[in-house]
Design a protein around this nucleic acid. Structure first.
Lengths: 220, 220
DNA sequence: GTCTATATAGCGATAGAC
DNA sequence: GTCTATCGCTATATAGAC
């Protein structure tokens, strides 16, 4: 259980805000790797180069630090941005290919660049932390709503098959992409099972899905 | 963090094997809910109705108990059985519909009936435990192999499109189903996002996938 | 803003009696 | 096979000096 660690050796007497941010960044790193119980306040303090007493001056308890860290992390957007660009693509009447391919690729790239996020989300879900529930309500439910509505519209237009629940299509869609990211982060670091670029994965997933849900009779 | 707990009030002087099995079952329950660090030997002993000293007579350390528990759990098959029935379906030349629908439905039902398993797998993956790696090598890789080969065969026959990596199709396929199960277990207990039966989900996923990867020109 | 020192509780694990 | 008692350690958190 030895990992390389970010080390912040800094001049003493950092300002309160700087210090708080430094602690949060270290907490994100450690909590994402080892979860809540697996991370100690001692280790966080050591890496920050301060005493535990100082840490508890900034955050009254470990719980408070954990919550603050999740809050900080979820404000780093990434999902908001992805959602906004999806909304925009739909509004300007982009091709289905453009919409689906673009969304998958954006998501895969985000997961790649911010692996801490998926790990923190899984940890908090397994631990039953409210953050996990909140994240689904605030960030995931709107995607089901937006994408679900779009698919229903295309079903009414006769372009997509209407014998499949629109939200089940959203789930299939998110499933391909989330599962692929999870494999890359959690198991497939050696890429034993599969080696493909994000572009190829996004291309294939969106092809499979679109061909899978389009009405055969209607030409595209 | 209060949960209902399986309680084993038993007559004293259980045989060694019985006791060991009882401890393993309790360990599975607790480790799957709270992970390794989140579970204490004290709690396991309390629920078993014995002292911690007794627990350490049966398992020399907490680590040993954890490993024994994962071993025990992974021998409860479920996946072997699913794999075998997939193999059989392919050999007897079943329809693609039969093969894909059957596999998804079997997997969804297994995940439903044994939620501990998915939780333990995720916990061990996040913790970087070797079990997780081993599970992928021994249980998941063969599925990629078997299903990948079958898809390649169908591609050569001209039934499936051959412009998509066969293993990427396997991933898309497993992704839909695993992600759906994870949603049911981790987030969707209130089914806010989606309410569907396992049968409907399996039907839709296999429809989407098969339509998505079949050559358009070839009638079925 | 930072420290040392310490309180208090809980952890995994052991000794030794029955 | 089981217990009580306890060890050595680490955890979160606090008090009070500088």
């Amino acid at each position: 259980m030895k990992e390389k660690q970010l080390k912040f050796e800094t001049a003493p007497r950092m300002s309160a805000d700087e210090r708080k941010n430094q602690i949060l960044r270290i907490a994100i790193d450690l909590f994402s790797k080892k979860g809540f119980k697996g991370t100690t306040t001692k280790e966080i303090a050591q890496i920050a180069g301060i005493s535990e007493a100082m840490l508890f001056k900034h955050f009254a308890s470990k719980d408070e630090l954990y919550a603050a860290m999740l809050d900080y992390k979820s404000c780093q957007a990434g999902i908001e941005e992805t959602f906004a660009s999806l909304e925009e693509a739909i509004e300007k009447g982009a091709d289905d290919e453009e919409i689906f391919y673009g969304l998958i690729l954006k998501a895969l790239r985000y997961h790649e660049s911010d692996q801490e996020f998926l790990r923190l989300l899984l940890h908090s879900a397994l631990e039953g932390h409210e953050f996990s529930e909140l994240f689904v309500t605030r960030k995931i439910a709107p995607i089901y709503e937006l994408l679900g509505k779009y698919i229903e519209k295309r079903q009414k237009e006769g372009v997509f098959r209407d014998d499949v629940n629109a939200r089940l299509i959203v789930r299939a869609f998110l499933g391909m992409m989330v599962h692929h990211s999870m494999n890359k982060i959690l198991w497939d670091s050696g890429q034993r099972l599969l080696q493909v670029s994000d572009e190829e994965a996004a291309r294939s997933f969106s092809d499979i899905l679109l061909n899978g849900i389009r009405n055969k009779e209607v030409g595209q």
